Amino acid sequence: MTQQANLDTATKGLDPPLAVVDLDSFDANARSMVDRANGRPIRVASKSIRVRYLLERALAMPGYAGVMSYSLREALWLVAQWRTGPLADTDILVAYPTTDHSALRELAADTHALRATSIVVDSTEHLDLIDRALGIDHPPIRVCLELDASWRPLPGIHVGTRRSPIRTARQATRLAAEIVRRPGFSLVGIMSYEGQIAGLGDAPPGQRLRGSIIHWMQGRSGPELIRRRSATVAAVRAVTPLEFVNGGGTGSLELTSSDPSVTEVAAGSGLLAPGLFDGYRNFQPRPAALFALPVVRRPAAGIATLFSGGYIASGTATADRQPLPVFPEGVKLLGLEGAGEVQTPVVGKAADTLRLGDRVWLRHAKAGELAERFQEYHLIRGDRIERTVPTYRGEGVNFG
């Protein structure tokens, strides 16, 4: 059977809109990422999954250890879910600073969460905020210093994400010394996210020139970061021991794992392989997450209109952030309308074969954001549903 036939057969008793994850593809992607990580353990980026069962599935596989959370409140929720059992000792890194006073108070009051959780900081202002939220006599909070991983080839040119102001070994050492000096804090790690490599494909479909420019940039940015990160880690280790040095993302596993200063890598999107991950030269993950929308109108020849579908990915407001129609082959979004809040027209020769109630299968541009649209994912293997599991939304939680 074709993949479309498998999808349709597995879900024939369900009404769309619906979302599925192909377990064979998910598992194959997980194994491939372990191979690409070259022996470095992979910390699972939860924002790219947002389904507790799939996080647990990945963490049960050899080569995976720990979670990179996107919210302190999410980390506290995961700690509560895993308080007993095989994941009770899971280490969770909150990869973004928090200003949530009530969540900080919950953390400080929970000895288990204190042991399991560390929070990213990049300034003394973050330390001050925690002190104000908890009082200066609070129990030790595990913190991780974030190093800016962007590329700056010339003054005024910034290539990469706008995250930490800590860029040099000197700046990192100064902050590390302040963390060590202040009561109530324990510096346990360093992280850096090279978004200009990990999150930017160097072979975007139909854009050869753009791909060549990105490939050239990444070939220079990577070595510069390895030198600077290695120097920073050595300088901070002279101030205090570190439990981990985290780097990378799905798109840079080979590069990041080649850095001798890095002890672990982070990845998540590669497990589900959304549309934005079709454009990399060094790896081709298998699309694992798809969603189906029903045809509800036939407004004209060559056009079928689907219900809902405006699941636009975060980031730049460009065409590559729209959903990608997959099946039936040959359908595409209508350029002047795109994917809409309540309707999404598709065009192409295959659109003429669609009737009311038929399904069109699509992929989201990013990995985790699809879970915010659905209460549950149907996990399929071949032409059958193996199980149905709730997303974060289905479990009644939302972490922003």
Rank of each mutant, 00 (worst) to 15 (best):
A203V: 10
T353Q: 13
G189Q: 03
L200I: 06
L253K: 04
F307P: 00
A198F: 07
A149H: 01
T318I: 13
S69F: 04
L134K: 00
E369K: 07
M61F: 00
A371G: 07
L356S: 11
L242H: 01
D320Y: 12
T9W: 14
D278F: 04
L23Y: 06
Q207D: 13
E178C: 00
V389P: 06
G382D: 13
D137T: 15
W82N: 08
V397K: 07
I190P: 02
L200C: 10
L354V: 09
Y311H: 09
G270I: 03
A304P: 06
L54V: 08
T318W: 13
H158M: 08
D131C: 14
D148W: 15
M1Q: 14
S257R: 04
R298Y: 12
R152H: 14
E337N: 04
I197P: 04
T99H: 14
V295K: 14
Y53M: 10
P17D: 10
I49N: 01
Y392R: 02
P260E: 11
G248Y: 01
L127R: 01
S164W: 00
W151G: 01
A30Y: 11
G248C: 05
S308V: 08
G63W: 00
K12E: 15
S25I: 05
V360F: 09
N282A: 13
T263C: 04
Q3G: 05
G309K: 12
Q171V: 05
R43S: 12
R355T: 10
P323H: 06
I130D: 07
R181H: 12
R163I: 05
R321T: 11
S48A: 15
T168S: 14
H364D: 08
T173H: 09
R227V: 13
R373C: 12
D259G: 07
S46K: 02
P287W: 11
V159D: 10
L253S: 08
P241G: 12
L271F: 14
T117I: 15
L76F: 09
A266D: 03
T173I: 06
T9H: 15
S123N: 10
Q171H: 08
D15C: 04
I42N: 02
L242V: 01
S308R: 15
G279F: 02
K47Y: 09
L104G: 00
T263E: 07
M1E: 14
A273T: 14
G184Y: 00
P285C: 03
A103P: 04
D148G: 13
W216F: 12
G184P: 08
G248I: 04
S258F: 13
A19L: 09
A169D: 10
E369N: 06
E178S: 08
F185Q: 05
Y53D: 13
I157E: 11
S164E: 02
A28Y: 12
V245N: 04
T11G: 11
G184M: 06
L336E: 13
A58N: 05
P345H: 07
A267V: 05
A95I: 01
L127Y: 08
D383I: 09
Q4K: 15
K47A: 04
H215V: 00
P183Y: 11
R50S: 07
P155Y: 14
R52V: 10
R229T: 00
T344K: 03
